[in-house]
């Protein structure tokens, strides 16, 4: 169980202020989606929550302890992180790559033990990459590699999981698999934070959505409270058709919205 509390958080990347005065308490047992247009600060917010960037104001605490004072290994064991993109610098085998997730649990001289093995095997099975175990990760397709990277994050076995655009490069079937997997993690008591672009998926699986716009948190609540046509128009600049009562709920972007009178409204 892990709770992240963000209070009055401001952060900058280089000279640009990216986050302004964000307040949120992320409690376990929920799949929390972070949505917003490109450049809204979604990834930066996740990185700040993990203590990966310096913040200018405000605080981030994990279970009441300030993130900056938490030893790196404790932090790593509390929240696993899947960064955006698929950075992979050496052509490791899939199994070896997933095993990297066990690093926070290993002492400087100890070797992978039976418990680590089990976690690695289970993580590969859950993201449907067990059959790729002996393949070279850099030679996989984008979608396969994305699932391997997710397995790496799951192998940490942390109570918290932060994933940045986990659906990019995945086919629809695997998108559903991954969202179901994240939802199950949350149901089992984990705190799952996912940066998402697919609003239908967000509406369908997330318990709560944080909508960011230009570095500010403009909406925070259950999907039906956050996803409204007016808000999508204001934040994303799009017109949309929203049917959250449908099974599954649908959010379809229709057109770019402009203030032009014969367009939209």
């Amino acid at each position: 169980m892990v709770t992240i509390r963000v209070e009055g958080l401001c952060a900058r990347l280089g000279r640009r202020a990216v986050l302004h005065d964000i307040d949120a308490t992320l409690a376990p047992g929920a799949l929390i989606g972070i949505i917003g247009p490109n450049g809204a600060g979604k990834s930066t917010l996740v990185r700040a929550m993990l203590g990966l960037i310096d913040t200018t104001h405000g605080s981030v605490t994990i279970d009441g302890r300030a993130i900056a004072t938490l030893p790196p290994r404790d932090r790593a064991r509390a929240i696993a992180y899947l960064p955006q993109g698929q950075t992979l610098h050496w052509p490791l085998s899939v199994e070896r790559l997933v095993a990297l997730g066990r690093l926070p649990h290993l002492g400087p001289m100890s070797r992978i033990g039976a418990a680590d093995h089990d976690a690695i095997v289970a993580a590969m099975a859950r993201t449907d990459v067990a059959h790729l175990a002996d393949r070279i990760a850099t030679e996989l397709s984008g979608g396969e590699r994305a699932r391997v990277m997710l397995a790496r994050a799951l192998a940490v076995g942390a109570p918290g999981l932060a994933v940045d655009e986990p659906l990019a490069a995945l086919d629809p079937g695997h998108q559903i698999d991954v969202m179901q997997l994240l939802a199950r993690e949350a149901q089992a008591g984990g705190l799952v934070i996912a940066v998402l672009h697919d609003l239908s998926m967000a509406a369908r699986y997330c318990d709560r959505l944080l909508l960011l716009d230009r570095g500010r948190l403009v909406a925070d609540g259950p999907p039906d409270a956050v996803l409204t046509q007016d808000r999508l128009r204001a934040v994303y600049g799009i017109t949309s058709r929203i049917d959250l009562a449908a099974t599954p709920p649908l959010v379809a972007p229709l057109d770019r919205w402009t203030a032009d009178p014969d367009h939209g409204e």
């Binding site: 990185r47 993990l50 990966l52 790196p72 290994r73 404790d74 932090r75 790593a76 064991r77 929240i79 696993a80 992180y81 960064p83 950075t87 992979l88 610098h89 050496w90 490791l92 790559l97 990297l100 997730g101 690093l103 926070p104 290993l106 400087p108 790496r152 940490v156």
Partner: peptide, 23 residues
């Protein structure tokens, strides 16, 4: 030789390594 684990973690880039507890 002390930091061989950190070298492995850096395979995932700097953010990836730090999220695995590497200082």
């Amino acid at each position: 030789l002390i930091d061989r684990r950190a070298l492995d973690a850096l395979t995932l880039g700097e953010d990836g390594a730090r999220s695995l507890g590497v200082d």
